Simulated scan of single mutants.
Amino acid sequence: MSQQPPLVRFAVLDDDEALSRLDRDTWSSLHAVVEPPAPPHPPFFSGRLGPRDHLVAELHGRVVGYIRLARPTPLPSNAHVRQVQGLAVATAARGHGVGRTLVRAAVEESRRQGARRITLRVLGHNTPARTLYEAEGFVVEGVLPGEFLIDGEYVDDVCMGRSLLGGARRSAGAGDS
């Protein structure tokens, strides 16, 4: 892969197979809490999350990553928040800024949509993802200890977020015990 920056765009219906394949190729217990689906593989897009909920990264015209950005709930009182609900980067494209570019694009798209906050959940043992999110201004706002049993080990579910009103900032009272 070259060092050119990836092109980021909204997904389109024609990306379904490429994104489904990317999900299968990048599946790992480092970030997944469920086993990958067995063939035949379901469509990538669903009635709840379609192309406009996904930003896609391309290098040389090839899909090499995506980030899923959605409202965390349908509640009007929560409409000011966007949530990263998935991030995948092709193995060959890792180390070329694709993940960072997608996270930054998600932050900007959230702002464009009028959101005031962006949140995500990441497994505690997923150090590469946590490092990326922290470098992009996300802070730990809570931890659900031992929330998932993966490969015989109990793994924390780490809740992270950042303000979209300027620099990264911790929400008042978040994570306080």
Rank of each mutant, 00 (worst) to 15 (best):
Y133T: 00
V155N: 03
A79Y: 07
P5M: 00
D15E: 09
T127I: 11
R82C: 08
V56H: 01
L87M: 15
R21V: 12
R117D: 14
E136R: 02
Q4P: 04
V139T: 08
A11F: 07
P5E: 03
S20K: 07
L19T: 06
S28W: 04
A106V: 08
R116A: 14
Y133K: 02
V103Q: 00
T101Y: 00
L59F: 03
M160A: 06
A93G: 05
E141M: 10
R117A: 12
S77I: 06
R68T: 15
R116I: 01
G137S: 06
G47Y: 02
A18V: 10
R130M: 15
Q4R: 11
S177A: 14
G50M: 10
H80C: 05
L75H: 09
I150H: 05
P40M: 10
M160F: 03
R24A: 14
D176C: 10
V155R: 12
Q3A: 13
L102T: 02
D156H: 14
G99M: 02
A92C: 10
L69F: 07
N78T: 07
A174L: 07
L75A: 12
H60Q: 15
P6V: 05
V84A: 05
A135G: 08
A88Y: 10
L149W: 11
H54W: 04
E109W: 01
R100D: 10
Y66V: 03
R169Y: 00
A174D: 12
S163G: 14
V158L: 07
S177Q: 15
H41G: 08
A135H: 11
A168P: 09
R111I: 00
D156F: 06
T73K: 05
R48D: 09
A32R: 14
S171A: 14
S20R: 14
R117I: 03
T101H: 06
S28A: 12
R21Q: 11
D151W: 09
P39C: 07
G142S: 13
L19Q: 06
A57H: 01
G97C: 02
V122Y: 04
V84D: 01
A79W: 09
H80R: 07
R170I: 10
A88I: 09
Q4W: 07
V81G: 01
R169K: 07
I118K: 00
V155D: 01
E136G: 02
